[in-house]
């Protein structure tokens, strides 16, 4: 007997939740408990009184699984709203990464040149290294990291995706 898997799609979910103890464990745990995937997850409080946080989750799965994920998130008591940015229409998504590259000579010059092309900022430097700050889509950061890998990538830290729908409306 072999286990078959269905085709997956990438979805970006944006949630507003009560900023209370255990909320992240509740949400992350629901994904593990029900066998769903998390590609990235970001969380921070977003209101002046610190009562509400926004969580952005990048997940993947077949359409029915995505539908279930949204329904399961929505029934958690502290969850105010769940929106599938991928479904509701045009949206902006960004990720920030810090990319440390070490090297001298040609590699060092090439790293700086590529950083300029990608509009990455230098936020730390030594004679033998840079840390670049880059924002963009996941794909852009993947590409940048892929190039840097060939010329001295040491390590990378990524925030995961945040996203908002385009236009004046809120979710």
């Amino acid at each position: 007997m072999h286990i078959t898997e269905e085709q997956s799609q990438r979805h970006v979910l944006s949630l507003t939740v009560a900023n209370e103890a255990g909320i992240l464990a509740r949400i992350a745990g629901m994904f593990t408990a029900r066998g769903y995937n998390i590609d990235s997850l970001t969380v921070a409080d977003i209101t002046q009184d610190h009562s509400i946080s926004r969580i952005t989750i990048v997940t993947n799965g077949p359409p029915r699984m995505i539908d279930q994920i949204i329904a399961q998130l929505d029934r958690l008591v502290p969850v105010h709203r769940v929106v599938d940015l991928t479904e509701v229409g045009p949206y902006v998504e960004r990720e920030l990464a810090l990319v440390k590259v070490a090297g001298t000579g040609d590699h060092r010059i090439e790293a700086l040149r590529l950083a300029e092309v990608f509009r990455a900022k230098v936020v730390d430097t030594t004679i033998e290294s840079f840390i670049f700050e880059i924002t963009g889509t996941t794909e852009k950061i993947d590409t940048f990291a892929g190039l840097m890998r060939q010329i001295g990538l040491v390590e990378i830290g990524r925030t995961g995706v945040v996203g908002l729908i385009r236009g004046k409306a809120a979710i």
Binding site: R64, D67, Q68, A71, Q72, D74, R75
Partner: peptide, 11 residues
């Protein structure tokens, strides 16, 4: 009453 019960097993 629970939306997550809908389309979980049967469409």
């Amino acid at each position: 009453i629970d939306r997550s019960s809908v389309n979980k097993n049967v469409l």
